[in-house]
Design a protein around this nucleic acid. Structure first.
Lengths: 211, 211
DNA sequence: TCATGTAGAATGAACGTTCATTCATTAACT
DNA sequence: AGTTAATGAATGAACGTTCATTCTACATGA
């Protein structure tokens, strides 16, 4: 029956790329103007499409925000692995810190992160989406901490991994805040502040000098 | 000359109390609805005045936001002293954490803090106001750390106070983020995560059990 | 090869709200 | 009377969203 005929794969692929296109544009606008500051007209213009077409692919502006969070979730696993996989975890964190300071629009942005966090207090849907994201991050991160050193992990005992992961999460999220509120803060000073704690908790090998 | 006549002190006092009244209402609305989500009509209604009257006391909505930050600055010194003055700094921090989770509207609110921090990336005026606030906090905090123990301080050497203050700032701001993104997170778990670091840095005396 | 039919993609003007801000007017006080 | 405080309706811009319409690509029948 032609009425039940599946949608062509080609059309499906194009629809997906259109969604991505809109999400890219929306993310850029949200970063530059804030969620409420960026209008649908600007988002559509940035995406290079008309205002109305946006609503073929997303139910509402809110749905776009939720889709951005969900999309972030997909790449998150890879980015954590990238952060943890290097030889110097502290250096990787500091590099991230510098990226947050410069407010680049292509990567997960400090302002957007903070605005979403604030919105979590008001929108249950966003709270739920962020909780899911955080759970994944924590799980992945703890996995790395517990994994044997021979497998690229830190080889921490199970009982200690959990509180240390929470602490590290607070520290890194604190760095996001700091990057937003003090874009000129010297990353070296941050490194010097973090080093003793990183060493104590087993995230950095003692005796190493900072770059 | 009557044109140069000073405004009567009584009128001046009333004007100031009206300003406070509006700021209280605006802060409440900003917390509940966000900066862009709260309209001037709602703010005026919350303050118990008419919409137009708001503009007798504040040039614009943006000016209200800046005034809220500036006002926060006044009470900040006292609240830091309060936080640091007690016998158990960690317990005081955890109490703050619980307050941030419950999103109470009377005290400095997590969502508002995060929203302002995000806005700092977009508005130079807000960035400047927040920088001034942060500078005061850091100065006051470092003062406490360096002050002699006999004077209620922590008696830290000058060279170590600065990086430790920065670290503590990151940790506390990280707790704000965490409180917003995980309102159910157990404060006890947070305490267990923080304790070793607090002990290492001299903010808690080793061997003490958590409440 | 070329009209014709058709379904989905895309448009952008229009809708009903809501927003921040203004202002002519009134109330209150000195 | 004269000055200040306060009102709330009016304003125009901007918002998210909708929809009648047009465009485009492709299948069909000859």
């Amino acid at each position: 029956m032609s009425a039940l005929q599946r949608r062509t794969p080609k059309a499906e692929a194009r629809a997906e790329s259109q969604r991505e296109r809109i999400l890219d544009a929306a993310q850029k606008c949200f970063i530059e103007q804030g969620f409420h500051g960026a209008g649908m007209a600007l988002i559509a213009e940035t995406a290079g499409i008309s205002t109305g077409l946006t609503y073929r692919y997303f139910e509402s502006k809110n749905a776009i925000m939720l889709a951005i969070i969900a999309r972030e979730l997909d790449g998150k696993r890879a980015r954590i692995a990238e952060l943890c996989g290097g030889v110097d975890f502290l250096a990787a964190v500091l590099e991230k810190f510098r990226a947050w300071q410069t407010a680049s629009a292509d990567v997960m942005n400090a302002a957007l992160f903070l605005e979403m966090s604030a919105e979590a207090s008001r929108s249950p849907e966003i709270l739920e989406a962020l909780r899911k994201s955080d759970a994944l991050v924590l799980e992945e991160f703890e996995g790395w901490m517990r994994r044997d050193r021979s497998a690229g992990g830190l080889g921490m005992p199970a009982g200690e991994a959990s509180p240390r992961a929470l602490l590290m999460q607070c520290l890194i999220e604190g760095l996001v805040v700091r990057a937003a509120r003090d874009p000129d803060l010297d990353a070296g000073a941050v490194g010097r502040a973090l080093l003793p704690v990183f060493e104590q908790l087993g995230f950095a090998t003692p005796g190493k000098t900072l770059p």
